[in-house]
Computed example of a mutant assay.
Amino acid sequence: MRSNELKQLVVNALDELKGNDIVTLEVFELTSVTDHMIIACGTSNRHVKSLADNVIEKCKKQGVRPLGTEGVEKAEWVLVDLGDVVAHIMLPAVRQFYDLESLWDMKSMPEVSEQP
């Protein structure tokens, strides 16, 4: 599955269970680890876990198995690593604290000057 198709599959899975504030970040120019990051919020720990479970289930049905998942037990911040796409599903307070959108925003990256 192409990375753009996988990205849309993840967004649809999050939207299906009413994930909040879904944002996609194109990070392929910033890292070789992944092409896309998707960030979404759930309203409670149970909602965060359900969103992550739905992403995993929908991806498996399309033949894409996660490379790893983190944070499922506490479900304050669940990371689902799908290779070309990494989904971060968080409680709003956790999302605000870590502010991944600003961290991965190319426009806020300092310019690197070349030294002679």
Rank of each mutant, 00 (worst) to 15 (best):
115 Q>I: 09
17 L>G: 02
12 N>Y: 12
55 V>S: 03
5 E>M: 10
103 L>D: 07
9 L>E: 03
22 I>N: 00
27 V>M: 12
93 A>E: 15
54 N>D: 11
63 G>F: 08
96 Q>Y: 14
13 A>N: 02
69 T>M: 09
20 N>T: 08
22 I>R: 00
50 S>W: 02
87 A>I: 01
88 H>T: 07
52 A>S: 15
49 K>W: 13
53 D>L: 03
114 E>P: 08
104 W>S: 04
61 K>R: 15
60 K>S: 09
93 A>R: 09
1 M>I: 13
88 H>Y: 12
44 S>L: 05
73 E>N: 06
81 D>G: 07
47 H>C: 03
4 N>C: 04
26 E>N: 14
1 M>A: 15
27 V>H: 00
4 N>T: 14
6 L>Q: 11
37 M>P: 02
9 L>Q: 12
84 D>S: 13
40 A>Y: 02
111 E>D: 13
10 V>M: 05
62 Q>H: 11
97 F>S: 12
82 L>D: 01
62 Q>F: 13
89 I>A: 03
75 A>K: 00
110 P>A: 10
76 E>D: 12
36 H>A: 00
86 V>D: 08
110 P>N: 08
109 M>H: 14
34 T>R: 05
57 E>G: 15
46 R>A: 09
86 V>C: 04
107 K>L: 04
63 G>T: 07
39 I>M: 02
31 T>K: 01
95 R>K: 09
4 N>Q: 12
55 V>R: 00
41 C>W: 01
94 V>D: 11
59 C>V: 12
70 E>I: 05
44 S>I: 08
60 K>D: 11
19 G>L: 02
103 L>N: 10
85 V>H: 06
107 K>Q: 14
7 K>S: 08
82 L>P: 02
62 Q>D: 15
46 R>V: 11
15 D>A: 06
73 E>W: 07
28 F>A: 14
